[in-house]
């Protein structure tokens, strides 16, 4: 559930980003010396409706970092002060392992993160447990440990700056980041 919602969110972000890029590229020039001089305001061009929904199909290139983030999912989440891989994380990690087996040149870094309800040093250790729990799971699903580097950010890199349980939950995570070999 978490995985699906997140994928949709991320895809929406990509689409919005693409749309704003397109908007920038086609922004009309306002220099009055350029092109036709203004002729009483509205140019005499027949109306053409804009492209309808679905006219442009955007999707990540298979094997790319975007493919991994959007179609596989780069985050899994942990319970309070725990580094057990939760049942809702297993399908995500299974998909990560399958994707990594399909693209064997990809190397990854797994970052373990914690909420702010702990002290810095303890959370560095707890984050290490989380990143290694993710690593162990991927290795158990056939990913070579030589492709995996682990890192703990402790509580130093929260993805949600909020201070409620929802934010804490999002910040207790393991993130899989493609460091090389993505196409």
């Amino acid at each position: 559930m978490r995985f699906n919602t997140q994928s949709v969110m991320r895809l929406a972000l990509v689409v919005v980003a693409a749309a704003s890029l397109a908007a920038c590229a086609t922004k009309p020039k306002t220099n009055p010396d350029a092109g036709q001089p203004p002729q009483g305001g509205i140019p005499d061009v027949p109306y053409r409706p804009p492209a309808g929904p679905g006219a442009v199909d955007t999707r990540p290139i298979p094997g790319s970092t975007q493919d991994f983030i959007i179609n596989v999912g780069d985050f899994v989440y942990f319970d309070l002060d725990s580094y057990d891989v939760r049942s809702d994380a297993m399908p995500v990690l299974d998909a990560q392992a399958a994707w990594l087996r399909r693209y064997p040149n990809v190397s990854i870094r797994i970052e373990g993160n914690c909420d702010e309800r702990g002290t810095r040093e303890y959370n560095l250790a707890l984050g290490s447990r989380r990143s290694n729990a993710v690593k162990d799971y991927l290795v158990s699903r056939g990913v070579s440990p030589s492709r995996i580097m682990t890192l703990s950010n402790g509580k130093e890199r929260p993805i949600n700056p909020g201070t409620d349980e929802e934010a804490y939950q999002q910040n207790r995570n393991g993130q899989t980041i493609i460091t090389s070999g993505g196409m």
Partner: peptide
């Protein structure tokens, strides 16, 4: 190979106690 953190000098300043993480264990 793993994380290193939480350094602190000994009172004489000639040693440092710190944490090293290996395979998730600190």
């Amino acid at each position: 190979a793993g994380m290193v953190f939480a350094p602190r000098f000994s009172p004489s300043g000639d040693r440092v106690v710190f944490s090293v993480e290996k395979n998730g264990n600190s």
